[in-house]
């Protein structure tokens, strides 16, 4: 674990800087590009941590989201955000920054972080040890999400299905009601 930690820290700093740029920039297109850079750095971080499944999914979804967001952004006439930020937003972000510093002091001042992957929980230990003999599935991630926790995956599929349904209902060309009116007229 020790030999990849500097790379991980570099990626983390890059992601934090990219997020700040995405928040602070006035141009929507620049913000979208910054968010995409953060996402790609995150997929590289997953690869360093030994999670190729998550890295593949993150990479592919990032590409798709980038296409959709750029498409949605350049369709707007005006990509610059002019509204100045109000005092409430500044005060809230200052409060949360103070909370972040406080929690950081609590963690680093006291016990410190646990070792990476150190408290291997009881449930995940069962998955790791019985994954192959119970499901005969070579990919442990697939055996968890589609066998041990297939019920969770069904919930996730339902969420996706419902959100697509809602998006199509909101974005379709014209309401069905109007077509009927046109036919009646």
């Amino acid at each position: 674990m020790e030999n990849i930690t500097p790379q991980l820290y570099a990626l983390l700093v890059f992601m934090i800087v990219g997020s700040i740029v995405a928040i602070e920039t006035r141009n929507l297109l620049s913000a979208v590009i910054s968010v995409a850079a953060v996402g790609f750095a995150l997929s590289v971080a997953f690869l360093f941590l030994g999670a190729p499944d998550i890295a593949i999914t993150q990479l592919v979804v990032e590409v798709l989201v980038l296409i959709i967001l750029i498409r949605g952004t350049i369709l707007l006439d005006n990509t610059a955000v002019e509204s100045h930020r109000d005092t409430l937003a500044v005060v809230t972000s200052l409060i949360f920054f103070g909370l972040l510093l406080g929690f950081g002091a609590m963690i680093f001042g006291g016990r410190g972080f646990p070792e990476f992957g150190e408290p291997l929980m009881r449930v995940s230990r069962v998955y790791v040890h019985t994954g192959l003999p119970a499901t005969y599935c070579a990919n442990i991630v697939s055996s968890v999400i589609l066998d041990f926790r297939a019920y969770d995956t069904m919930g996730e599929a339902t969420v996706l299905f419902t959100s697509i349904l809602g998006a199509l209902a909101l974005l379709r060309k014209d309401g069905k009601r109007k077509e009927e009116e046109v036919v009646a007229a």
Binding site: P52, D53, A55, I56, T57, V60, V61, V63, L64, C137, A138, N139, V141, S142, S143, I145, L146
Partner: peptide, 18 residues
């Protein structure tokens, strides 16, 4: 090959959609 190598239904589906 989602049950043998990294990947699976979600990632492969997104690639086909791409």
């Amino acid at each position: 090959y989602g049950h043998l190598t990294p990947g699976g239904g979600f990632a492969g589906g997104v690639i086909i959609a791409c």
